[in-house]
Each structure stands twice: as structure tokens, then as C-alpha cells.
Nucleic acid binder design. Structure first.
Lengths: 154, 154
DNA sequence: GTCCGGGCCGCAATGTGTTGCAATAGCGAA
DNA sequence: TTCGCTATTGCAACACATTGCGGCCCGGAC
């Protein structure tokens, strides 16, 4: 029985990290469950940022019996594997960054409500400033900076 | 009947902003209530950062009947008056900054759990970087940056 | 001193995130 | 294939934050 996922394009650029998820999970003596499968299916269809609430809703579309606690715990697990990262949006709600190819911070505009990713070179300025002045090593992935974007100056 | 608060040291450095709170509130047609009095008494004993939860607990020490909703609404009111500012801590919980003399961001160390205020000159670097590169004007008061402090590098 | 209007309080309900616990079920071993 | 260990689930309860609403009481008017 052919199964599309079994030969997921393992090209020169590398296979989708999600394809390794099953093995990575099992490698730690952890288990591959339907609930985890559902969440990962949802995640691989999306990119960028998602709120926990949205993920729960999408999982429930596929599996009515999805419970929040399971989703949160699975997300914790995936974060340990580096497949997602969580941060807090401008209002303090949990936000998950899917497949962070590179660690980045976020900007939130209180004017238009948009969220942008912080460009690496801009983030670097912040990281370096704090490192040199205070010896503080920033974890950019957890940073959301509020303010007003260029188009929203009152 | 002498009342200590009536002549609170209005010296050259200016009276405590809290002393003006009553008038500021009344000036807007708003009311001076026992609940608001309790919260302000709690606030004036503290400085720096407090979580909403802690404030509620301290209010309850003085007044068993304190309810969360009242505290949150009073804090909103005080924020309008500029007496407090709220932000989100590293874990997304509400944190209130008492009497922000100057707007400042925060650093949180995931190693030791300490929170520091961001020195103005360091904050300025961040503000300027984002302003010049992206035209984004940062509201530092709402920023909490996570990472590891100098003493916690694994 | 009393009245009256509207701001405010406390309750209750909702949404979001977290945790303890008993029962379930994945998966390696026999 | 069956067994057994234990990771994981789902429930329930809790914690924090927020909001709507009926009734209360602050404070100015008389």
C-alpha cells in the first residue's frame, strides 16, 4: 500500500523536518499517537505564527475529541525537539512559531494590529547591544516588541 | 482631626503622585471609593513591578471583600492617569510598573528568573535601530526581552 | 439633612493556560 | 500473538484575565 509520506522528497535541500518527527519522537522512547499525528498534520499545513487556540480549533476539525491539555503538552514536546517555538504575543497570549529556520523576534503594531518578523540584521543590533553592554544573551524567539509601524504614526 | 496624608511632603521635589490621585480621579467626574483607596495604599508601599495577582492578594489582606474585577478595573483607570503601566512578563502574565518615571523595557533571565529594568541608554539603541531601519517606533514599556544574564551562562 | 443620578461594585460566566490523577493504549519483548 | 511496562490521554479542577449586568452608594444639588 503506497503511502505518499513515505517517500517525501528527501532532496538535496533536505526532507521536511516533519518527516523526521516520528523518528525523533520514538528515538526518545516517546510514543507516536493519533493525537500527535493530528497536531503535526495541522502544523505542516501552516507556517509562520499560530495561536494555541487556533491550533486547538484546527485539530478539533479533524478530531472532535481533541482536548486542549493534550495539544499544549504535545506542543511542549515539539518545542523540545525544536520543531516549534513559543512566545507571547502583544496581549500575552501564547503564540507558536512553526519551524523556526532561524531565530527571530517579532514586531507588533498597536495601530494596525499587524505582526512582523524582525529581520535578522535588525535583531542582531539588539542582541549585540545587550551582550556588549550587559553581558546579557538575548533569546530573540521570545521577544515581541510593541510600537507603531511606519504607516501608523497617528 | 489631624491626618498625616493631608500635608504629605510637597517639597521641592514634588509631592508623591499618589497624593494627587484623589483629585485627578475626581476631576474626571470619577469617584473616590474605599476599594480604590485600598489599592492605592497598596501601590504606594511598593515600587518597581508587581503582578496583578500579587496586588489582589495584598488588597485582600486589607479588605477581605476585594474582588479581582474591581482591582483590574481600577488598574485600568490608574493607567489612564499614568500612575501605572502594564506589560506582559516573560510568561505572558500581566505585570504592572508602578509610577514609571521614565519608560523602560525589561530583561528576564530564564536562568535565574530575575527581571531587570532596561537602562535608558540601552533601550535607546533598540529604539533607534528599529526607527532608522524600519520606521518603527517602539513602545518600550511593553517590551520584555528573555535571555540569560551574565551570571547564568550555563 | 435628604434626594437623586450615574459611576462603581460584586457576582457570575467566559476564555485561555496549567496541572493532578486514574485509565488507556503504544510498542518492545517473550 | 500476547504480555507488561509506562508514556500519554482525557477529565476535572484550578489559576488568571476579562466582561456583562443588576443593584448599590458616592457626592453634588437643594
Amino acid at each position: 500500500m503506497p503511502h505518499a509520506e513515505m517517500n517525501a522528497g528527501a532532496g538535496v535541500t533536505g526532507p521536511s523536518p516533519w518527516d523526521q518527527a516520528v523518528d525523533r519522537i520514538r528515538a526518545g522512547g516517546l510514543r507516536w499517537t493519533p493525537q500527535r499525528r493530528t497536531l503535526i498534520e495541522v502544523l505542516r499545513e501552516r507556517e509562520g505564527h499560530v495561536t494555541a487556540t487556533e491550533l486547538i480549533a484546527r485539530c478539533r476539525e479533524r478530531d472532535q475529541t481533541t482536548t486542549p491539555s493534550t495539544v499544549y503538552r504535545t506542543l511542549d514536546l515539539l518545542e523540545d525537539l525544536g520543531l516549534v517555538r513559543h512566545g507571547h504575543g502583544h496581549d500575552g497570549r501564547e503564540e507558536y512559531h512553526i519551524l523556526p529556520q532561524e531565530v527571530h523576534g517579532h514586531l507588533y503594531c498597536v495601530g494596525c494590529g499587524t505582526t512582523w518578523e524582525l529581520r535578522p540584521e535588525t535583531g542582531a543590533v539588539i542582541v549585540e547591544a545587550l551582550a556588549s553592554q550587559l553581558g546579557f544573551s538575548v533569546d530573540l524567539s521570545h521577544v515581541t516588541i510593541s510600537g507603531r509601524c511606519a504607516g501608523c504614526h497617528d
